Amino acid sequence: MPYAPVEGARLWYEEAGSGHPILFIHEFAADHRDWEDQMRFFSREYRCIAYSARGYPPSDVPSDPKLYGQDFAVADAAAVLRHLGIPKAHIVGLSMGGFASLLFGIRHPEMAVSLVPAGAGSGSPRSEQAPFRAASQARGDALIRQGWPGEIAEETGHSPTRIQLKKKDPRGWAAYMARLSEHSGLGTGLTMKHYQGERDSIFDWEAELRRMEVPTLLAVGDEDRPCIETNIWLKSVLPNAGLWMCPRTGHAINLEEPAAFNAALSAFFSTVERGRWRLG
């Protein structure tokens, strides 16, 4: 199995296709498998890489809480690209991965052809940050204690921003739930406590974001309430960003509406690669 060495762990990754590279960074309640629709579609013309984050088998699950957090998430993405000899790629992330993709653009702009932060921003508004952090600590403790099968998975799959997938695609939702039940309680619990529960507010990065010129496509579902305010704000501060809002769609936008998501990204990548994204 292919692994990329990173600080304190090894990350399992998979590749498909050839051409310009795309790196996919998954969300908290997912792993590399949740990018399958994108890997199949884009590998026709691109070199696609998806990996499982630290704490998500078959990647290593460090037991040291100090080996989790937003700094590791960004450094790991860069390390995977360096391991594969890729100097620059399109960076696509969902939710927790979308957060990482934005921070990647701040810290490693020279390695990003473009950014697609999808469904990013939960817990970032000032009024929501403290309760979000407290809830993340409690959820992380519960995951470490009891793991995913049962109550936590059912609550996640039926949450207000994920129930849309079940309504639209029951078969796809069932597959998602099966994957969810296989996650490491320890790995995801430590991720929830020390990445989700300790990360910055995106609003903290305003000065850096206003200077960031990497072409960016913000993607969000119009029923993904915790993320809408942050994405509208991001559109107002990022100098080279567009905002795509998918109607009747919740948080797992790439799973709910893969055809629309893939089409939006395909058009964006093409425009960026032709040097036509930024007008003026």
Rank of each mutant, 00 (worst) to 15 (best):
E128C: 03
E45H: 13
A120D: 06
Y51R: 04
P149D: 05
Q146C: 00
S101R: 07
H83Q: 10
D31M: 01
D34V: 08
G119V: 07
I91Q: 10
K66V: 12
E110F: 01
P131E: 10
S124N: 05
H83K: 07
W148C: 07
D31G: 00
R54V: 04
R82Q: 15
G55P: 07
I91S: 10
P62E: 07
A134V: 14
M39T: 14
R82E: 15
W35H: 03
G105E: 09
S124K: 09
L115N: 10
S114L: 01
M111L: 14
R44M: 01
G123D: 10
G93T: 09
L103Q: 13
M111T: 12
G97K: 08
E128K: 14
Q38L: 02
A138G: 05
A16N: 11
E14N: 01
I144D: 04
D31V: 02
P58H: 11
I106K: 14
S136T: 11
H32P: 00
Y68W: 04
F99N: 12
V92D: 00
Y56N: 08
Y68G: 09
L23I: 04
E128R: 14
Q146E: 14
V92W: 02
F104D: 08
R107L: 10
L94E: 13
L23T: 01
S124L: 11
I152W: 02
G119F: 01
E27R: 11
D34K: 04
S52N: 07
S63F: 00
A89W: 06
E15T: 15
L81Q: 03
